[in-house]
Design a binder for these strands. Structure first.
Lengths: 173, 173, 173, 173
DNA sequence: TTTT
DNA sequence: TTTT
């Protein structure tokens, strides 16, 4: 379809340390659970109420996965920009099931750390590193030829190569 | 949680005429299916490929539901701004199931029609109405005290009252 | 024009304590300077470089102005959602000048505090208040009939009334 | 600064055929004027009013410039995702002047055509092409080592190379 | 399961 | 200067 946009923007806290899996050919995939919440005042009781929403975020990009693996911990506050994707799978009874996830893969995907706590003890380092994830404005790309799973969400441009290189040679930034 | 953001931005086409249901107390709820798609060139074959993603959009706001009911038809191109929400339900076997939807309810939710073709043959009418939905920058609000279902996604501000009034007295704008 | 969108999303730090002015009829207007920055690696030298961009943010909404006045201090990290607006004015030579600002006024405008450090030394207070600004998902509205200056950026819906009330009676939340 | 975001999202119409300039070393730069507008109902008179905002959009990316040059005409409806940038310059009196523009350059910049009218006669071609600009989710990159002017808004990742290649060999898509 |  |  011409001219479509599929964008999710989240700012929230990571509910648990990320899980990193690997595909058969060795590419990493990171899974995050991120909580957003909103508060409002009940019109009847006048009480303040809160509702938390949990989001599953899947990072297919290799460079970003490294960032997640090394710096994102339970409790971290993140800015996430990705796309909505619904995946179909079969449960044990063979029934179709669907899961909707926020996917960071193609062009325009971003992950930025918003708190400067990091793993190093408030050195400002974690903040600096967030600066790299965000300031580097990382763009995920699919550099492989035969995408599996949801990797169809590719994009013509964007490589992330530089970012990966950065990660290799100058972490921690 | 302090300082969280939960925002979905979609531009896509409506896959079927919207369904409008009503709650027991008479408030309307509109359901839309919106398709976004992306194209890319396969790195191996060099072929252009396309993948379509379908999104379920639920409109809880009364004013916006009227807009949807009257003007949104199959094929319409929409700009949608809402929030991600995952709803839990039980299937016939009593198993927990989850559905993730883009909800237009609280503050910041928007629906704008992007094509001026409408259903009436380029009358400018559909476009004009899009102008109102967009230009009016409609904000959904929950004006009831005992929200049911997912209406917990309320917000302190936003009324939409003006918009509703507009709809009542001067459609088609 | 039908179906237009004018949206600015910023996450950055406040460069100085906000200025609060008042219109002749007493409504507050807050001015903020917000810095965003990005870093990248120079392709030639391999050096890491950084560029900071400064944004002028103008808050016309009364409730949000109170939030700014009371809680936003130099150094605060904010999430801002507003609209671009270019204002024309005359300099001392009578020449036309233009200033482009990020305006928080109408529907969809948001200001959320992203750091929980606040002005009091990790009291959690600033964070809590951010939770209200964000969680309450405040929507600015123009409740006056004869808008001056850039107040043309009104909107049919959105009142902010509740938010103001909240501010009045239960600060600090 | 760590963890900042600078994002502008516009949907509007192009006010005039784009201007394409070239830098000394031959890279193209496209300038667009885009109008957004909003309508609202005056609270006193009850009249419907409209205000149009004009935005200057500067495209530094070579691939996107080609898209603009070939397909974007006066009146086209575009989706734009870029960053705010304020440029300093001297007027004829030597006074400092500032211009704020929406820049499409680095990672995350996008331009998508939202109408299928194009220059080819409503063949669906323009729509198809929008699909490529959008679906290809073009990401601008700075492939040169010594950025001049505002090219400091670079980014580590993103090349746009594929997109350019696509443009070269298979326009009109 | 986060955060405030 | 666009668009409705």
């Amino acid at each position: 379809m011409a001219g479509s946009v599929n964008k999710v923007i989240l700012i929230g806290n990571v509910g648990a340390d990320p899980e990193i899996r690997r595909t058969q050919d060795g590419r990493p995939i990171a899974n995050l659970r991120i909580a957003t919440s909103e508060t409002w005042r009940d019109r009847n009781s006048g009480e303040r109420r809160e509702k938390t929403e949990w989001h599953t975020v899947v990072v297919f990009n290799e460079g970003l996965c490294k960032v997640v693996e090394q710096y994102v911990k339970k409790g971290a506050k993140l800015y996430i920009e990705g796309a909505l994707q619904t995946r179909k799978w079969q449960d044990q009874q063979g029934q179709d099931r669907y899961s909707t996830e926020v996917v960071l893969q193609g062009f325009g995907s971003t992950l930025t750390m918003l708190d400067g706590r990091g793993e190093g003890g408030g050195s400002g380092f974690a903040g600096g590193r967030g600066g790299n994830a965000g300031g580097g404005d990382f763009g995920g790309g699919d550099d492989y030829g035969a995408p599996s799973q949801s990797s169809g969400r590719s994009s013509g441009g964007g490589s992330g190569g530089n970012f990966s290189r950065d990660l290799d040679d100058d972490i921690p930034f």
